[in-house]
Design a protein around this nucleic acid. Structure first.
Lengths: 216, 216, 216, 216
DNA sequence: GATGAATGAGAGTTCATTCAT
DNA sequence: GATGAATGAACTCTCATTCAT
């Protein structure tokens, strides 16, 4: 690990602890203690606990956003103007999501954090994410819209979130689920494994027939 | 609300607050304050905060479990011995889940709580649920197995959790999602609505083709 | 134990718990819980925790006082008017102290309680004891005075307390000391044993030469 | 009092209050209030109430142990190899015990604390003391053994504790006893006074004849 | 005669944050 | 640039006691 600076040490430690326990359950004392830095360092370097939480997210989302924009650029270039097929779009998300945190604690932590962002009170966090990273999501949904012209807008909106939910829920609850899976099937599971299993399910979900009496 | 006893008042208040903010973010002070009871009442009636959390769950899961067993009994009776089709099983879950909390704060709170049970540290809660309510889940998965004989065991396991994740994630994050949906599509969404939309997606997900190179 | 009434059950339980842990460290909840009676019973039957503590003492001290008076009567009768020798007086205390709690949890508990009465804050208790049981002690010291005419009054006062201290300290700390003794000498110790060992030591202490330059 | 640092202020205040009321009866709120420091300061500087209690003891026992070792070194040097007489050994304890807390609240507090250590539940404290200060006690008893070759081991063990009990009980209950003494004999008592009175008593106690039928 | 329910007070502890150095 | 010390607020929990029944 060589000698890394205080700011990084805090981020590294905080991200793991947040993912393991949630935000409220992780005290600054625990973070700074494990990171081997002074208790006051978080407030000194980040200003507050809230700001630290946002910084932890930014370290994932900044490169994710950048790469995802590039990936979409590449896709659009390849299809020059024509509709990019849904499978390619979904593949693209998956690839980016797998690529970004590869060097770090990996997808699991990232997803765990995303799940927390949804499920924990942290209103400030949801606002922060929407503000800084809403654009790329909007671009993506635009492309998905062109790829699924027969889907009513509302239906598409919900299905995207169904699918997002599946991914976040599964990958973030990975440890708990792995425990159960391994005890039931004595079988090891890797993240890539899970993503492979998710692919056909996600595609099928997006392409499912419309519900009866769809009023929209 | 008429005059309800202290225990119930605490449960009612706690369940809403837990769902809104999470467990760690909801203090006993807030609960008892809002419920208009003495601060010590929680410890008197439940023993500890942990026990209160579990009690909140039991109030949903006990009737849910009972009804779900009945529903499965009815299904098995109707098909006397023959395989119950997947659609009927999934329908049965949905119906039970909708029926139980109908009189209460409804499905949303219940799902929010379930989501928290997964995502928050609360190890004690996961253990409690698995211990007290594992049976009905086991029975259900057994029936699903008969209904999907072509699905490898591991694949079925994961798909059930994919689908469970979708439901929990969507229904529990309902408020946040509703905000976005309504601002994007100026459209009201009800829980029943969402369940209706979920149905074909869930079926499609379970019936999706196997992933390439499935090693199981 | 047959069926004993609530008051007795409380006293029996309280006395053991007090001796084991001290007064402040023993809650009414613990007492009533272990005694299998209602939490409010202590306050109902005794009025307060203080009154319970005093009642526990009275149950020992009332018979002790009565018997000790009888024993001193007998001694004085035997020596009709002549000085009762010190050894006889000390023997008399020891015998009474051993006899009274024989049917109960025995001397150890009694001494433990006495020790607590001295060492714990409980000012109310010291006052209570002095008020209700001071007479017999005064009578005893009067006899000791006649038996040790060469001892200055102050010296006698202190030596009696030295000796009382030895007894209380040793017998009340019996469990801790037994632990150490048994681990050092692998030897069992009984209360009677200890009293036998105490006898010559106490006599020698009372008869020790006066200190140098005794200014009294 | 000049300006002393928080840690010391807490220790000074705690030691007096503990001695006056016992451990359980002294709340951190009382200590910090009287010391004029923040309530959280105890936990910040010591970690817990238990740790504070142990720290209070260490402040006495560390210098006591050091000085006592030195005193025993000096004695052994003076007698080079030959048996150190019992009187010299006892004198040495008394001197050290008087010297150490001279600058502080004095022997009374120290003894009161020791008494509490025996009589109050505080198992952690007994363990702490035995662990950190057992050595010097072992060394001392070794020397006493050489000085009293005719005493059976068990007898010596108990007599040492008898004598220790006398000292602790008398000196720790000093205030109560002084009250009684002064009201009976209108006479002031100092600690040095009491130690002077204790000396011949203690020697006589150690040299008392063996009890009848001593089985050891 | 006895009790289940409830309560106000106070316990030890942990928290994020601040500030002088 | 960084930190040890300190703080006020809030936490969960336990206490002895009261009271309507």
């Amino acid at each position: 690990m060589a000698e890394v600076d205080t700011t990084t040490r805090i981020l590294d430690t905080a991200e793991v602890l947040f993912a393991e326990r949630g935000f409220a359950e992780t005290s600054l004392r625990t973070i700074t203690g494990k990171a081997g830095v002074n208790l006051a360092a978080v407030n000194y370097h980040f200003g507050s606990k809230k700001a630290l939480i946002q910084a932890v997210f930014s370290r994932y989302l900044d490169p994710f956003t950048a790469r995802f924009h590039e990936a979409l650029d590449a896709l659009e270039a390849r299809y020059h103007g024509r509709t990019v097929p849904l499978e390619a779009l979904l593949e693209s998300v998956a690839e980016t999501a797998l690529a970004v945190p590869a060097e770090r604690n990996s997808l699991k932590v990232f997803m765990r954090l995303l799940g927390l962002a949804y499920s924990q009170a942290q209103g400030h966090l949801r606002r922060h994410i929407q503000q800084h990273y809403g654009d790329v999501f909007t671009r993506f949904t635009g492309l998905v819209r062109r790829a699924t012209p027969d889907l009513p807008d509302a239906e598409r909106f919900w299905r995207l979130h169904f699918v997002l939910g599946t991914a976040i829920f599964t990958l973030s609850g990975l440890d708990a689920l792995k425990d159960i899976a391994e005890q039931d099937y004595a079988q090891q599971v890797s993240v890539r494994d899970l993503v492979r299993r998710l692919r056909p399910v996600v595609v099928a979900a997006m392409n499912a027939p419309l519900p009866d009496a769809a009023r929209t």
